[in-house]
């Protein structure tokens, strides 16, 4: 499967420009992490790729043909978990999965069993969804996205509400699934992208700031990340962004990213988070 997003612009009826001239290509297998602040256009991009929205300009192609003309084929092979979703509280976990499977045309009950097992819901299959906790409902959402081993998975903040152990487990499941399919993962948790994605798209203000391997993004930030100890009321150097602050006895240990770091700032090994902040900050300044 290959997805080509060609010069896509999305303007909502209210006039808001959600995406501007976005272009990229993804071919199976691939695990793409999408990073960006709130309102950057991540969810809009996801909705365009699920054919829930229609682009204002440009086109999205699936295997060389227009996505919209292949909507039914797309949906047959799509596993989608939006950021905000609802479930039928009156159904049990099993009933809901059975229902979603029927909608997706999945007849094999083993698929449901597998999805429930992957998401740790096997022993909760007979519990009404209304009686589940927030995290368990999130797992139901993930289960319905992965059931049937879809060829394209689009996951928007899938690990929200999960504890760290579950978060790690699920990202590993997604990573494993990405071996033979395309997985898009939109998240604020940079660690997840760094850990499992082989490609990252940084979106800011509707534009793609970076498209490439996470290691490349990190490399571009070398010599632009450092840390130093400062006093409480000391201002950070100009054109720098704070990554983290830790109060110590000697002062505030501050990690910063910036174009030109002063000499007193000790340079550090950049992480993906540093690289993301640097990239976004640089774009804001320009």
């Amino acid at each position: 499967m290959k997805i080509d997003v060609k010069d896509v612009t999305m303007i909502y009826p209210s006039g808001k420009k959600a995406l501007q001239n976005v272009s990229f290509s993804v071919e199976s297998p691939d695990f793409v992490g999408i990073l960006g602040p709130n309102g950057a256009g991540k969810s809009t991009l996801m909705k365009l790729m699920t054919a829930a929205l229609r682009e204002t300009r440009g086109k999205i192609e699936l295997d060389g043909k227009s996505l919209l003309s292949q909507e039914s084929m797309l949906k047959r092979n799509l596993g989608y978990l939006p950021q905000v979703f609802g479930l039928y509280d009156e159904l049990t976990v099993w009933q809901f999965m059975d229902y979603m499977s029927a909608l997706k045309g999945i007849k094999d009950k083993e698929e449901i069993e597998w999805a429930l097992e992957q998401t740790g819901l096997k022993d909760k299959r007979k519990i009404r969804i209304g009686n589940l906790s927030g995290g368990q409902k999130q797992r139901v959402g993930i289960a319905q996205a992965i059931v049937g081993h879809p060829e394209l998975m689009i996951l928007d903040e899938p690990t929200v509400g999960l504890d760290p152990e579950e978060r790690i487990r699920f990202r590993n499941i997604f990573s494993e699934m990405s071996r033979d399919r395309i997985v898009f993962l939109s998240t604020h948790i940079v660690d997840d992208v760094q850990a499992v994605c082989n490609r990252v798209l940084v979106i800011y203000g509707g534009k793609i700031l970076f498209d490439g391997a996470p290691s490349d993004l990190i490399d571009s930030t070398v010599d632009h990340v450092g840390s130093y100890v400062r006093s409480l009321d000391e201002v950070i150097p100009e054109d720098c962004e704070i990554v983290s602050k830790v109060n110590t006895r000697n002062g505030v240990l501050t990690r910063i990213v910036g174009e030109n770091l002063p000499d007193y700032v000790e340079k550090c090994e950049p992480t993906l988070e540093d690289a993301y902040l640097y990239t976004v900050a640089a774009h804001s300044r320009s």
């Binding site: 949906k75 047959r76 905000v84 979703f85 609802g86 997706k104 045309g105």
Partner: peptide, 19 residues
């Protein structure tokens, strides 16, 4: 009551109209 669930069911193979 199903508006929030519709974001899931609308991307399945079955057309929303049929549903």
């Amino acid at each position: 009551g199903r508006k929030n669930v519709a974001v899931l069911t609308n991307v399945t193979g079955i057309s929303p109209k049929k549903l």
